[in-house]
Design a protein around this nucleic acid. Structure first.
Length: 97
DNA sequence: CATGAGCGG
């Protein structure tokens, strides 16, 4: 389950999300989006968990909570847009859970 | 260089 975390502190890194979400369940991978140009954090990140129940539990528990002194917003992440490649745009059905 | 609504390569 992909989890979207927004309104993170600019100082928050992937390790922080990993550390926080690990407390609820197995964290497959965590990543904080940073600006490719400047390298500064964009303020949001993603966390993937193998256990959907743990993910939902983490979302409900970590949503609108305080992290690094800032209130974070945890929501279910949307499927990434298909990376622009030579392949035609395969319409990916939205994962309605 | 600092920045605050929002979904990454």
């Amino acid at each position: 389950m992909n989890i979207f975390i927004a309104r993170l502190s600019y100082d928050t890194s992937s390790e922080d999300l990993q550390h926080v979400f690990e407390g609820y369940g197995e964290v497959s991978s965590s990543k904080v989006i940073m600006d490719y140009e400047t390298g500064r954090s964009k303020g949001y990140g993603f966390v993937e968990m193998d256990n959907d129940e743990a993910a939902l539990d983490a979302i409900h528990d970590l949503n609108e909570t305080e992290l690094d002194g800032r209130t974070i917003v945890v929501k279910k992440a949307r499927p990434r847009s298909s990376r622009p490649s030579n392949s035609y745009n395969t319409s990916n059905s939205y994962n309605s859970w």
